[in-house]
Structure formats: structure tokens, C-alpha cells
Simulated scan of single mutants.
Amino acid sequence: MTGNARSEETLLLRSAVDRLKTALPRTWTLDLDLDPGRDGTVTAVAPDARLTIRTPSGASATFTIEVKRASRGSVRGALERLLLLSDGQPALVITDFANPALRKQCEELGIGYVDLTGWVFIRNDSAGIFVRTQGPARQAPLPDGRTTATKRLDGPGASKVVRALWDVTSTTGVRELAQRAGVSAGTVTKVLPALAAYGAVTRLRDGGVTDVDRRLLMERWTLDYKIYRTNPEVLWRLAPRGPDLAYADLLATDLGNDPTGRTIAYTGWLAATVSLPEGNYPVVPNTLLSIYSADPGALGDDLGLRTASPQTANVVLIRPRDETLLTGVPLPVPEPQIIADLMTMGGRYDELATQLSEATSVRTETP
């Protein structure tokens, strides 16, 4: 490890310990050992540090520490290394941001974690120590205006990268991913750190992707992307005969091939129902027809829809920020887009998003 990298680790470590002090009772004491190899123990690799926590009763626990930045390296690899170094003794991860993947794996393995944003989990039953605090859902920009891994993921380029990652099942380089997504390699390079920091992807040293957690991928994307807020035009309409017949009227007018350019695609309940495996039925009823259109106003007029409020509408017409969703014929948008839309539509549609996501995962895993 270079001197600069070690200095960064030490700064991160001290900052996290200061954060931990604020989460503990004032009568507890902390003793940080930055040179754990000085005890004469001969090992091929020394831990980054050790931290001893003492309670007023005299009970104490010493934790072997691994320092890991959220956007660097594999979570699994770091935890395996820590378990080896701790040799059955209490273990603790210090990081700038404890993303969901790290928190989940740490707690499953009985490893504590402390980050700079407020996420703390430390448990040692023998010393009577238990601390848990929560931080933000994502890492915030640094005070000087630089960003770490928090690029907003609601733009067309980021959305294309996320949708391409949904189908990644083996190691994929940046250029290959860019080709799949239809974006530049630079766009991929800008988007991946935010996903890696959240634990949604695991990256190689050269920047490529080795593993994708679909649940966390959707979760991180929808922290920024919201179907009714991200897209530039959303019109709420009422179809007097209901959403099913409104879609039948849509197909009858053949607007998907309209030479005026009013191309469409559909999402929401209808798209999920079409995408579910045979024999699976949607867990929520159809109350809203959700259509992407290049010209929502003209489409609503052609179908004879009435203006409505979000509370009374049974049709929503949306002009997408990402125009590549418009296929030229009435087809559902890609599955990850359907899931993200359902997750952010409100009501019970998140249940349908979960159903489709789980069904898709089973289908992917089946030989």
C-alpha cells in the first residue's frame, strides 16, 4: 500500500472512530491501535487497526478492523479477509459509506460496521455492547462540491446503463457494457461508481463489472428516478369505458405506426402482466393504463380521453425523457424499466414490481 493510500485510510479510520464516539454513552472509552503488528505476532498480512471499547463496568471488547472505501473492491473479498485476520475474535469494518450490500453481509456474518454518514452496528454479547444507528440512504456530495459516488441516476444515459446491467450475468468490461447500453464508455464510467458505492455492482480493478445485485440495482436507481417526476410531461386522463377498453381502442387506431411520429410504448400494470411468466397472475388489479408517447396530448385527443386528476384518472400518458423507450410499435418497455416505473407509481404497484422482479430472477436462474 502506498503512503498516500495509508494516509487516506488513517484519516477515514480516525473520522469514523470520532463518529462512533458520538453514538456511544459518554462514560464508555475507546482505544484505537493503529499499529496492531507491534505485538510481535508474525502474520503474512496485518489488520488495518484494532479498536477496544470499554464500558463503565470494566467489560471490554477488542475489534479487528478492516478499512474499506465503498467504491473500491469487493465487499465479499474484504469481509473474507477480515474474518481470516480476526480469527474468531470481534471484527469491525470502517468505511466511508456502509451501503446496503455491506450492511446485510456484515450482519449475517456477525461483523460490525461504522461509517462516516451515521450507519453504526456493533454487537458483542460477552461485553454487553450493542450499538445501532442509521444514516442516509445514499452518500452525500463532499462539502467542496466534488462528488464521490452519488451521481444522479435519473438521466437517459444512466437509465440505459442500469437497464443494460440488468442482463449482465458474467464479467463485462466498460466498453462492452457501453455497447449494450448504446452510450459512450465515459457515461458508463461516470455511472458505475454510484452503483458500486451502493453495493449494486462489484467491479474489477480495470473498471469492469463482475457481479450485479438486481434488487439493489433497482433500489439505487429509484432513489433518483421517479416515473412522474423524471419524465418531462405527464397527463392524467379518464377513459369512460375503463383502461382495458382504452388500450383496445389504442390498438385499433394503430397509433404505434402513426407517420406523424406519435410512437408509443406501455409500462405499469399492462406491461408487467405481459412480462410475467405463463400461469402467473398480477397481484394487484388493473386500475391504470400507463402509456409512453412522443405526443401525449395528441394521443389523448385521438382516443377521446377526458382530462382528470391523478386521483380520478384511469389512464396516464407520459412523454419519456429517454426517447429510446419509444419503439415505433405498441410494445412494453424493458423489464427493468417496468419494475422501476411500478416501484415509483405509488399505491400497491410496488407489490407488482416485487412480483415481476422475483419471477424474472427465477426465470433467469432456471437452466
Rank of each mutant, 00 (worst) to 15 (best):
R241I: 04
R262I: 15
W28R: 00
D258Y: 03
T27H: 13
I339N: 03
Y281F: 15
R38L: 11
V316F: 02
G268S: 11
K68C: 03
L299K: 04
Y228W: 04
L331M: 14
G145R: 05
R220I: 05
P296I: 12
A340T: 08
Q179Y: 03
T187Y: 01
A101H: 12
D224V: 05
G261S: 06
A197T: 08
A78M: 06
G40S: 06
D244H: 09
A313F: 06
I318F: 07
A5C: 00
A23S: 15
P25A: 04
A49R: 00
I318S: 03
L331W: 02
I122A: 02
R26H: 07
T354V: 14
Y281T: 15
L24K: 01
P296M: 09
E80C: 00
S60Y: 10
L12D: 01
P296C: 09
V201L: 04
T287Y: 08
V120W: 01
A127Y: 03
P296F: 12
D39E: 12
Q311K: 14
A239E: 11
T2H: 12
R363T: 15
R180P: 01
R54T: 14
T273H: 13
G88E: 03
A313W: 03
D244Q: 13
M218K: 00
K190H: 11
R6C: 00
I291S: 05
L356E: 07
A49G: 08
V362G: 00
G128I: 02
G112K: 03
S357G: 05
T148S: 13
T95R: 09
A200Y: 13
S71N: 12
A200S: 13
E176N: 14
D125H: 07
D295W: 11
L223G: 11
V168H: 07
R321E: 14
P136T: 02
S361R: 15
L289S: 05
A91Y: 02
L251G: 11
S170P: 00
R152N: 10
G297F: 09
D213Q: 11
L92Q: 03
P25H: 03
Q179H: 08
